[in-house]
Design a protein around this nucleic acid. Structure first.
Lengths: 246, 246
DNA sequence: ACAATAGTGTCTGTGAGACAGTATCGA
DNA sequence: TCGATACTGTCTCACAGACACTATTGT
């Protein structure tokens, strides 16, 4: 802050100035039926009435951005304890026709078995939609949320290549074919079994369990190898360095 | 936004609620004397009096975040037309002891020959400091700005590995030893000449010029090969996907 | 036996890393 | 000629990609 801002601040009374509102918009991703899906709500009011939009909440003066994001996700979906990551902050003037809102987008990655949309406190229509559909040319999405979705989709793809994010979509124990399917969906391309296994072999460890009742060779269950930190807890500013489109 | 937020919004009058203030904090990087340096100001007021801080401005209700960032950078340093990228948004409650401020950090990468700190409109003490020093354990920095610096430093390192950001620190024409030096400073390690050249050969094209007056073999000047878009213009949400710590 | 999926062995090409060698200037 | 830096050729090793092969279940 410059010294003139400093002076400004010393005589500063919030009431005197018009401030933008600050919100968080939430991108809760999961994988269901071999598709990457997103929690969306159907808007009931103008503007963008009946259009799909991302869930979001305003940031309370007494909560951090991350707290607001967790609160919003719990209110909409009942989820707690999940992988959460800040993505980008959207501040264009015309993002919302009613008023100036600056919105910080957060992305959550959740295994489908943890999602019970009915558990949210809200009565709004909340459901899962395939990201592919949401991004389609002809699909209309409220506000600048389509851009947010495109942005998050890209980010997931990139992070899949150099981190463990894929595990966030699976339960504790999983088979390698399951894991590979997750990677394929996130990357949008098929992988070779043998090569895939070589690549991730250090990230997982065997269990004693096998799939049963399948009419072919059963598959062994694995779990993540305890390489220190878990996927599922936010790490500060993690989005940053990293990240970047290639 | 949920329908209940929708209702909320319909009865919403800004005066009724306390909103956080929104600012942008600016990380203007350059390379000088074989060191990565940052434009910092010396605070003249409490809190953090006499401590170093990042330059920053409040976001006006009628300007976008990016516009605010460009405005701030021009006011402090006189720079215009530069590489700019959003990094992260900091929203903890206690970031500023005086009031709730949410701050969006932006990073600019500038060749040293373009920087003339005197050209800023502000009278504040503005100068360049080596990032190494700023990040040192014993250096005190105002607010949470040290975290911002650490974060940006990491991001630059990562982006250097898979993008062209290094070019942002150089003039139009440059020699390959110069370019290599930039990479070495950004990555924090020495590189092998031959390997480096193999890696970047597709990114550059020769010019006719050579260095002169050096008491050893002269070095040929190169320029960036016109691979479409330039480094120096912001690309939307570029920070996101990619990015990420490894 | 066969369909179906799980899981493994191995060849090949590419590219990073390491190092040794040659080139061209001023003094 | 020498010191200094620019620039190039090439070996090695690790790893991604591609493909062929073996293994184990239910019917």
């Amino acid at each position: 802050m410059t010294s003139s801002e400093q002076e400004f601040l010393n005589n500063y009374h919030p009431e005197d100035y018009e401030k933008p509102s600050v919100a968080v918009d939430l991108l809760v991703f999961t994988i269901e039926e071999a598709a990457l899906k997103l929690v969306m709500i159907r808007r009931e009011e103008m503007p963008f009435q009946n259009k799909l939009a991302l869930p979001g909440v305003f940031v309370n003066i007494r909560e951090s951005l991350e707290e607001a994001a967790y609160r919003g996700i719990e209110e909409e979906t009942g989820l707690t304890d999940i992988y959460l990551e800040q993505l980008y902050t959207w501040g264009d003037l015309e993002r919302d026709p009613r008023m100036r809102i600056i919105s910080v987008s957060y992305m959550a990655l959740v295994p489908i078995h943890k999602i019970h949309l009915s558990k949210g406190k809200r009565t709004t229509q909340v459901s899962l939609y395939p990201v592919e559909e949401l991004l389609a040319e002809e699909t209309e999405i409220a506000f600048d949320h389509k851009k947010m979705i495109a942005c998050a989709r890209e980010r997931i793809k990139n992070k899949t290549e150099y981190t463990d994010v894929a595990f966030a979509f699976l339960p504790e124990e999983f088979t390698l074919p399951q894991l590979q399917r997750i990677y394929e969906i996130l990357l949008g391309k098929e992988l070779y079994k043998a090569n895939f296994r070589k690549k991730i072999k250090d990230l997982v460890e065997e269990t004693e369990h096998y799939t049963t009742g399948v009419s072919h060779r059963p598959s062994q269950y694995y779990r993540r190898k305890g390489n220190g930190e878990e996927v599922g807890k936010n790490e500060q500013m993690e989005s940053i360095s990293e990240s970047g489109n290639r």
